[in-house]
Computed example of a mutant assay.
Amino acid sequence: METVVGIDVSKNRLDVAIIPHGDAFAVGNDDAGINALIGRLKAIGADAVALEATGGFETQAVAGLSSAGLTVLVVNPGQVRAYANAIGRRAKTDPIDAAVIAAFVLATKPEIRPLRDAETQALSELVARRRQIVQMIVAEENRLRMILAKQAQKSIKRLLTALRRELASLDADLDGHIRKSPIWKVRETLLVSVPGVGPTTARTLLAELPELGSLDRRQIASLAGLAPWTRQSGTWKGKSFIGGGRGKVRAVLFMAALVASRHNPALKAFRDRLVAQGKPKIVATVATMRKLLTILNAIIRGKKPWQSA
């Protein structure tokens, strides 16, 4: 039987459960704790180590474990909780969660995908920081339109100046980061050759969807959360939905699809045809997102820029 390790991650602690050994223990979520954990897991010959995506607290552990040569999986917390409910594990504590994570991996055997390397992780963090700065700029611009007091307006304008300066600095950092890797530079050039895809979309895809070009169209759509799933029972059939996958990728593809629906002749014709057939506009937009992702996937695989029909 495989030896599977489940780890429940919190800010300061890693709760560990090992199947089938039945061992359960905790270490610190720091260099000393992670190094001690690596030693124990290598000693027992762990086949897979699974952690939930926890918004960043898992990053240090994932980096340390994977660099030590262990097979690491980052699993979806929603799927793990659904599995826990299905097997009747209503109680929720850190040791129980660790055991459920290990059992989930053993039962479902999720596909093991290559983890992002340090350079890709750094690019992802820069892209995320740029997105945060843009959100702050939008929020301050909205406040400026609402406020009447001159002193408050001056304060907002000073902050906007600083934020725009920081945005320009981040863009320069991103340019430098892309230039470091000839492969990334080539891929960015290929992606932005498609009308509707700008540098922000291209860099988000490079950071958040490194599998682009290595999977088929159905797999890449599923990874991005754009593969439709239906609800059906007997003769009843509900509406199709999309969900799951990588939300950051889906967000940039939504904006890119809106732009492409106006400026990319092929995608504009595709969306207009769906609307003319009676499809709701949001459904047509989602279909355009999926079509755009398929095109980008093919472009990266074929290493050939966009060519208009």
Rank of each mutant, 00 (worst) to 15 (best):
E2W: 13
E2T: 15
V4W: 01
G6L: 10
I7C: 02
I7T: 04
V9G: 03
K11S: 03
N12C: 09
R13A: 12
L14Q: 02
V16R: 06
V16G: 07
G22V: 04
D23V: 01
D23T: 01
A24P: 00
D30G: 03
A32F: 09
A36F: 03
G39H: 08
R40Q: 13
I44F: 06
V49E: 08
F57E: 01
S67F: 01
G69R: 05
G69Q: 05
T71Y: 00
L73F: 00
V75M: 01
N85S: 12
I87N: 09
I87T: 09
R89H: 07
R90A: 11
K92T: 04
D97Y: 02
I101H: 01
I101G: 04
A103T: 03
A103W: 00
V105Y: 03
T120W: 02
A122W: 10
E125T: 12
A128K: 13
R131D: 15
I133C: 09
Q135T: 13
I137C: 10
V138Q: 12
E140K: 05
N142W: 02
L144K: 08
R145V: 00
A152Y: 01
I156T: 05
A162R: 15
L163E: 12
R165N: 15
A168N: 14
A168F: 11
S169V: 12
A172T: 13
D173M: 12
L174M: 14
R179S: 14
R179A: 15
K180Y: 04
L190G: 01
S193T: 05
S193A: 10
G196E: 06
T200S: 14
T200V: 15
A202C: 04
A202K: 04
L205V: 10
A207E: 05
E208Y: 11
L212F: 10
L215Q: 14
D216Q: 10
A221H: 11
L223D: 01
L223E: 03
L226V: 11
L226S: 10
P228L: 03
W236C: 08
W236G: 00
K239Y: 04
S240P: 00
A251M: 11
S261H: 04
R262M: 06
D272V: 01
A284K: 05
A287I: 11
A287H: 08
M289N: 11
L296C: 11
I300M: 03
I300N: 02
I300D: 03
G302S: 15
G302V: 01
Q307N: 12
